[in-house]
Computed example of a mutant assay.
Amino acid sequence: MARRHETVSFLSDYGTADEFVGVVKSVVRSIAPQALVIDVTHELPPHDIRAGSLALARSVQYLAPGVVLAVVDPGVGTGRRAVAVEVGDGGEAVFVGPDNGLLAGAVAMTGGATRAVELTNREYHLEAPGPTFAGRDVFGPVAAHLCNGVELADLGQAVDPLGLMPGILPLSRDEAGGVAAEVLWVDRYGNAQLNVDPADIAPWGDRVVIRWGGQERIAKRAVTYGDIGPGEVALVVDSYGLVSIAADRGSAAEQLKLQPATAVRLEPPDR
């Protein structure tokens, strides 16, 4: 028998106002009562594959070994593939979800896929009254069966991992003396994470020019939010090691009207 997994880490855009999350978790428990389901987040913007992919990539290095159940699935019920993707030595983790780019970044960050299957074996699904709730009828049951030690190959037809849908993780670039970047994510505190490594701006000193949407602001470099003065915005290295635009006890994103995918340019002040 294949490896039995103890933990299911569950991420989705289902929200918590409806019953969707509770139903999926109950389906998992009914099949694998010993499995612990950890809620990573269910408050991703609806249908936002990019946001889901980035959230999964940010969190994956901290998730317990086991099954990662990820559902942001605007193509549910269409021809998009449902997949399970194994990573790590001996199948340390398996990602279960739609093949729409959602899983790609996290799979890459965990060393790449060792095996993958399309979830074509209906023996491990629930009977579906309709095709629009794959989290309940396909992905959740498959995650539970993996926790019970079902072999990956039994879940469906093998697919070439190189043929899985790639993710879209934007990269910053050096451009005419500055760094062309974009906002990856705005957290609940209003910090705007950029796709910028701190080393890219390290030689510039303690002040950096931020340009976006025809506007300009000078930001200081700060170590903590408490180092930022009233009315200031600053560049802080966040908990994931990337540069974020931040304010102390306020929303930098709201002040500057930033949102995910906003183009931002950083420059040294004496350019």
Results as ranks from 00 to 15, higher is better:
77 G>H: 02
105 G>W: 01
87 V>H: 11
188 R>W: 09
33 P>R: 10
123 E>H: 14
46 P>Q: 10
45 P>E: 11
253 A>W: 07
101 G>Q: 05
184 L>A: 07
48 D>P: 03
1 M>H: 09
259 Q>S: 04
196 V>K: 05
86 E>G: 02
136 R>I: 02
168 I>W: 09
209 V>E: 00
118 E>W: 09
78 T>L: 00
159 V>C: 03
241 G>R: 05
181 A>I: 07
209 V>S: 04
114 T>N: 01
179 V>Q: 08
214 G>I: 15
25 K>D: 12
233 V>Y: 04
266 L>Q: 15
98 P>Y: 08
27 V>G: 01
117 V>M: 00
128 A>Y: 04
77 G>V: 13
17 A>Y: 05
198 P>S: 11
13 D>T: 15
170 P>V: 02
102 L>A: 03
57 A>S: 11
190 G>M: 07
121 N>D: 06
237 V>K: 13
190 G>K: 08
21 V>F: 13
196 V>P: 04
149 G>Y: 06
146 L>N: 00
36 L>S: 13
55 A>P: 00
83 V>G: 10
266 L>E: 12
183 V>N: 07
230 P>C: 12
60 V>F: 02
222 A>K: 12
8 V>F: 12
153 A>D: 03
104 A>L: 01
15 G>M: 14
42 H>L: 15
125 H>V: 07
116 A>Y: 01
15 G>T: 15
168 I>R: 04
119 L>W: 10
65 P>N: 00
120 T>K: 10
9 S>I: 12
44 L>C: 14
207 R>N: 00
245 I>S: 05
71 V>D: 10
159 V>T: 01
199 A>F: 07
236 V>Q: 00
245 I>W: 11
99 D>Y: 06
175 E>K: 15
44 L>Q: 11
47 H>N: 14
89 D>C: 10
11 L>D: 12
58 R>T: 06
25 K>S: 02
210 I>W: 03
8 V>G: 09
15 G>N: 07
259 Q>H: 14
93 A>L: 09
107 V>M: 08
110 T>R: 10
69 L>V: 09
97 G>R: 13
9 S>W: 11
80 R>M: 03
267 E>T: 15
253 A>P: 02
35 A>K: 02
20 F>T: 15
79 G>S: 15
4 R>F: 00
9 S>E: 03
238 D>N: 14
233 V>R: 09
77 G>P: 15
206 D>C: 09
13 D>H: 14
126 L>N: 01
127 E>Q: 01
239 S>L: 13
175 E>A: 14
121 N>S: 13
187 D>G: 07
130 G>P: 00
157 Q>L: 01
38 I>S: 03
155 L>P: 02
117 V>Q: 11
3 R>Y: 12
171 L>G: 01
135 G>L: 10
142 V>R: 07
132 T>N: 14
147 C>Q: 10
246 A>V: 04
133 F>M: 05
147 C>M: 06
22 G>R: 06
257 K>P: 09
239 S>V: 08
40 V>Q: 03
56 L>A: 12
207 R>C: 05
168 I>K: 11
257 K>E: 09
91 G>E: 06
69 L>R: 01
255 Q>A: 14
67 V>C: 08
166 P>N: 01
62 Y>D: 02
142 V>E: 00
95 F>P: 07
45 P>R: 08
215 Q>E: 05
162 L>V: 06
249 R>S: 05
49 I>P: 04
114 T>R: 08
233 V>T: 01
31 I>T: 09
36 L>G: 12
192 A>C: 04
18 D>N: 03
173 R>D: 11
